[in-house]
Structure formats: structure tokens, C-alpha cells
Amino acid sequence: HPVNIPRREKDFQGMLEYKKEDELKLVKNLILELKPRGVAVNLIPGLPAYILFMCLRHADYLNDDQKVRSLLTSVINSIKKILKKRGDDFETVSFWLANTCRFLHCLKQYSGDEQFMKYNTPKQNDHCLSNFDLAEYRQVLSDLAIQIYQQLIKCMENILQPMIVSGMLEHETIQGVSGVKPTGLRKRTSSIADEGTYTLDSILRQLSSFHATMCQHGTDPELIKQVVKQQFYIIGAVTLNNLLLRKDMCSWSKGMQIRYNVSQLEEWLRDKNLMVCGAKETLEPLIQAAQLLQVKKKTDEDAEAICSMCNTLTTAQIVKVLNLYTPVNAFEERVSVTFIRTIQNRLRDRKESPQLLLDTKTIYPVTFPFSPSSLALETIQIPSSLSLGFLTRV
């Protein structure tokens, strides 16, 4: 019997050999039928990307351009296909965004381009592609990653959207601040909202769930920052738009409630070490609108203070909030027309769009900063759960 001498790690070159006729099985098992909640949960982050890249390396090693082209086309088409099929599932989209980016980083890290080899170990440099320059395919993968990112934002927005108005505006977590006479029974505590309504906690839990999923998939930290910034933009824009359209939301107590909710969101950012990703800044218009609800609105000094404070709100938005402002009790007066005129005069030189509402469909441009991996390809083992027995470690 041939003695099966277990080969030591160092004998492997970090490639995976496969037969041309197995290419379809490869993309079927590794892409089309892989369940992010199934076997994929136990994989090292980015494993599918590394496996696909190791197969690509072997096709390059054979100097077989047809095999390289065919594999890349199959991989890209399969990822697009799975996202067409399950593009409304956040986990699936997040999983393939992370793996598409990892695959793109591998193509750069092992391209042989000096600029992408700075952090490589000598062994990793030995593993660079030897025959083909895949710069054009990198561009196609980058285009695909942008499409997947936008799909992820849409997925996430569909989940977050129903929570925002209820959680950020309607649900009151600060007891009694609305000045409503407490009824005989103690008001419900903040965390138990009426059936079916969302609270601020619902939003925070959902943000944590998104964040945990992306981390589990090995999403680049720089990309997670961009996703979180986009999430906060959507929360801030939807909340402000509703405040600008609803008289019942423009009161001193609502201003207090909104500032409390924003502070909880900022706490969440701090907790996730995401204070510098630009997310907090996207809430600035909402913060200023909440402050506007709480400051005095009578004298010229008040007008001066408001004009210098509300530098991220348009004149139309400031005027709208002042018009909608509803005194919380009989002792307080409404904002006078004269005062609003004063504000408009002070702001008439501003060069700004007359638009009132923020565009909640705005998606910030996404970038995928190069993120090399320290993982040594020759050490990668393929779990049997992936049913890829037809691949041979080389």
C-alpha cells in the first residue's frame, strides 16, 4: 500500500488544483449553495475568497489563460446570481461583499505590483501570480463590489426604515418630559413599547446586529466605517424629514427627546470605537433642529444665536421648524412672525438650495482601500463541510 505520508505545511505552495470540468461544481458548492448561516458560520473570514484565489493561482501557474478567464467569469457571474436570488438577505449580501473584497485584495496583494507587496512576507511574494496581469479583472471586481455595497445599503435601509420615526421621534423614553399629565397608572417603562412599535433600543439592537454580522464575515474595518456612516445618515435624514413635516414633533420636549436619542446613538458609536467614521457628523442637522426647538426665540440676540448655531440647516428648514413650533403649555407663546422675518433677513445672503427635505436615497460614494492579509495561503485547509473534495492542495 502506498504509505500516505502526511505532507508538512511547508511542502504546500498555496495553490488548489482543479479539473476544468469541475469549475461549475466549484462555484456551485462555494458560491451558489453556500449558506452564510450554515457551514459558512464556522469558516475563517474570507475563506471562500482565499479558496477561489488559490484555484486561480493554479490556473495562472499552468499559464492557461482560458482557464483563468473562465474561472473569473464563473466566479463573478455566480456572485451576481446569488445576489439576484437572495439580494434582500442582509447576511448573504454582507457575506459576499466581504468575500468579493477579500478576493480583490488577493488579486492586488499577489499581483506582483510593487505597490501591493509592501506588507508581504517573502513567502507571500513567492506566491505572486507568475503569468498573468489581472488589472482589468480587478476593475471589474471593484465594479461588482460597488454594486454589492449598494445592495447592502438597500437591504439595511429596508430593515431600519420602519424603526426610525417610531424609535427616534414618537417613542418617549424620558419619563414625563412631554408635560402630559401622568395618568393614574405609571407610564410604561421605556423598553416596553406598545405592541409593534419600535423604540430607540430597537434601532440600537439592529445596528449592533448589522455590525456583528459584518465583523463575523471579516468585512474590512474601513468598509464597516462607511456602512455605519451611511446608516447614521439615513437615521438622521428620515428623522429630520419627519420632524419638518409634523407639527406634533416640533415642541420643546421633543427637542429634549431627540437630543437624548442622539446621545444614545453617539454612545453606540463610542462603544464600537466608531467615533471617527463620519457617522456622528451626519446627525448634525438633526442635532441643530433639536437645539432649535429648545432655545429662546424672541429677541434679536436669540435670532443671532440661532443663525450662527444652525449652520447645517437650510433657511427653509429653520423657518419651517419655527413655524411648526408648538408651545408645550399655555404660558408659552408661539414664535412671532416678526421673529421669523428677522431670521429670514439675517440669512438672505446664504447661497443654498431652497429644498426643505433631505434626500434619504443619497448613498455616499464607497471606496475599498487595499487591505492585505497576513494569512499564509499554504496553511489554508479546506473544511470537508464545503464538499470541495475534488480540489487538490498543491
Binding site: I76, N77, K80, L129, S130, A135, E136
Partner: peptide, 30 residues
């Protein structure tokens, strides 16, 4: 050490063109 042979640039189709090259029947295509 001999200079590495220059790598051959593989021309890539665009994402849309790749779609045409779909390698398997699109079950869910109408």
C-alpha cells in the same frame, strides 16, 4: 536573479458583457 517575465495583461470584459457569458442555465430567468 533573472528578471521575472512580464505578465501578460488579460483583457477583461465588463460586468455586463460577462453576464452574456453566463455559463449555466439561469433557472430563475423567465
Amino acid at each position: 536573479r533573472p528578471l521575472p517575465r512580464p505578465r501578460i495583461l488579460l483583457k477583461a470584459p465588463t460586468l455586463a458583457e460577462m453576464e452574456e457569458m453566463n455559463l449555466f442555465e439561469d433557472e430563475d430567468s423567465p
